[in-house]
């Protein structure tokens, strides 16, 4: 016990806390979808949310960039702080917030535009480039970061929707990092991809950790084990356990976590 406290303290001093959630509750109409979730997500780490379907992990993820605002019946209580600032404070503009907290969705959703325009979309609406040359540079940098540049550099004018599923998902990642976010949320980014594309995206996630705090929701426990440093296990709207990934998978503290990991529930 003494040791654990010591280790935790060591971690939190070593890595800054990027996102901090205090007693977060989410309701969809009458349905209480997220109950009392407290979590601290470190900067420059990959944090995985795992749990059975309908456990609330995606809902919680969407709270972090206020995407739930677009759903009429959704209500969020409690505090979520990013860099110590409450993102649900009335003074916070959700549009600005989403520029800072990028999101990649389950199904690749490139816009019906060229590859270039897809990546340039965010920088353009936020005015990140003063001229065409700067914009070109941002697009190239983002595509390189997303490990897509070599595949598409000769056909930037081609439609983004004409690429393969894995390329489309990497395009969506490039699109998200082009706005220079601080946090990248990924909602099951590999569930629509084949194993090879999945491996590419996972490799990419590991590299993105250098620059961002990455939060990934996944159904695949192997994926969580491969890419993440911290893992949170959700069950029926509760955050059951949150710890280092190694610990969760080798020595879970909660019987429910153990049941899920060994395949008895979920």
């Amino acid at each position: 016990m003494e040791d654990m406290v010591h280790v935790e303290r060591a971690m939190s001093t070593q890595q800054d806390i990027k996102i901090k959630a205090n007693t977060v509750q989410v309701y969809y109409g009458e349905n209480h979808a997220i109950k009392d979730v407290d979590v601290e997500i470190a900067d420059k780490t990959v944090t995985a949310f795992i749990g059975p379907s309908g456990c609330g992990k995606s809902t919680f993820l969407r709270c972090i960039n206020r995407m739930n605002d677009t759903i009429d019946i959704c209500r969020v209580e409690g505090d979520i702080l990013i860099d110590g600032e409450d993102i649900y404070h009335p003074n916070v503009d959700p549009v600005q917030l989403r520029a800072k907290v990028g999101m990649v969705f389950q199904k690749p959703n490139p816009f019906p535009k060229s590859i270039y325009d897809n990546v340039a979309y965010g920088p353009k609406i936020h005015g990140l480039a003063r001229n065409k040359a700067e914009l070109d540079e941002i697009v190239e940098k983002s595509l390189r970061k997303a490990a897509l540049w070599d595949e598409v550099k000769d056909r930037l004018d081609a439609a983004g929707t004409g690429m393969s599923g894995g390329q489309q998902q990497r395009l969506c990642i490039a699109r998200a990092i082009a706005t220079q976010p601080e946090v990248l949320l990924m909602d099951e980014p590999c569930s629509a991809l084949d194993p090879i594309a999945t491996a590419q995206v996972e490799e990419l996630i590991d590299e993105l950790r250098q620059s961002f705090s990455v939060v990934i929701v996944t159904h695949s426990m192997q994926q969580a084990a491969r890419v993440s440093q911290k893992t949170a296990f959700f069950h029926l709207g509760n955050l059951v356990e949150f710890d280092d990934t190694d610990k969760i998978f080798t020595n879970p503290q909660d019987p429910r976590t153990e049941s899920y990991i060994s395949g008895r529930i979920g």
């Binding site: 960039n65 995407m67 677009t70 549009v95 917030l97 989403r98 979309y121 965010g122 609406i125």
Partner: peptide, 9 residues
């Protein structure tokens, strides 16, 4: 979703 997620109005 994709557009809102990038901070578009």
């Amino acid at each position: 979703d994709g557009s809102y997620g990038l901070g578009a109005t």
